[in-house]
Design a protein around this nucleic acid. Structure first.
Lengths: 179, 179
DNA sequence: ACCTGAACACCGTTCAAGT
DNA sequence: ACCTGAACACCGTTCAAGT
């Protein structure tokens, strides 16, 4: 609050004339973040490609404002979180022909995946492990870890994210066929 | 630090004889959390059921220590995060016959989903939306939101989580068949 | 080797007093 | 209606001084 006050050329206490407290300020930032989400879905054919586009936009939001995105992920749910994300999803879903419970489960799966993926991404890459640090593991397992960390860090994130979406959509299509 | 000191019957500054700073303390807590993860996989037949069990354990960890789990999700990656989770996964995967890149992508998909799902779960349920709050939406969309929030909150979390795992595993099995 | 007092540079928030 | 000074009850951290 004090720093924000300084930035605005005002004392910290003045802020309380405009905002109830710091928490409200943080939630407001998240709200602004979500309002910024732009989903351009109109050109897309078919529910699958439209839904993909919603979650791609969501991930782009995390890249654009990583710190606020962490707030989004961590702070308790608010109405605005639901109000921004859910209609965008349901809108993209038109034509899929699911009942509501299935739609909501699909939403939970896709949003959980996207939140988790973007969060891991935003935190940065895994540090090179120190040799002594891994003493808990057997020698073979230790070797495996050393081999994997660079591959983990060197991955093409966009392709990797799409791969995860592919998995989930394969599951959803199968679900749809079963009725 | 001051509160922890009090809890230990000692002044806050004394802690700096044992720990470099607060950050290190938080990372240590995450490390203890991960060390606590118990995966009982030995009885399970087949890689799929074993891998499922790994991520179920992970989610159970979030329920047991929600605050530390949030730290896990938010703090930068450390060696110990990889060292605990990845070997457990790779171990469960034996017999699936994938190359490393595919294994790592499967790991990313499943861990992202589980982190995201557990995080949303841990934050608590969505508040009942206020009627005036949703003025941004059209009337029909507003009605849809009002209808959905109770369903969203009332869901059977265990079943919902498993449903998401189902989707991803369906995708992985398809991937496996294609080679 | 470990603990402490004093000190520094911070926080968020309240409230009476000002314009 | 909005801003401010003073004040309260906090933070994490350093460092010289103690045992």
């Amino acid at each position: 609050m004090r720093r924000l006050g300084r930035e605005l050329g005002v004392e910290a206490m003045s802020l309380y004339n405009h905002v109830p407290n710091k928490e409200a300020l943080l939630d407001g930032m998240v709200e602004v973040l979500l309002a910024e989400m732009e989903v351009s879905v109109d050109g897309k054919e078919g529910w699958e490609e439209r839904v993909r586009e919603v979650f791609r936009s969501f991930r782009r939001l995390a890249h654009a404002h990583p710190d606020v995105f962490v707030l989004f992920a961590v702070r308790p749910p608010t109405t605005s979180k639901v109000v921004w994300l859910l209609p965008a999803f349901l809108d993209a879903l038109r034509g899929a022909g699911w009942e509501m419970r299935t739609s909501l489960r699909a939403f939970r799966a896709l949003s959980s995946y996207t939140i988790g993926y973007a969060l891991v991404e935003v935190r940065g890459s895994v540090p090179e492990p120190a040799r002594d640090r891994t003493g808990i593991l057997g020698a073979a397992e230790e070797e495996r870890i050393f081999e994997m960390v660079p591959i983990l860090n060197g991955a093409d994130r966009d392709a990797e994210f799409e791969f995860g979406l592919d998995l989930i959509f394969t599951g959803l299509r199968a679900e749809l066929e079963r009725g």
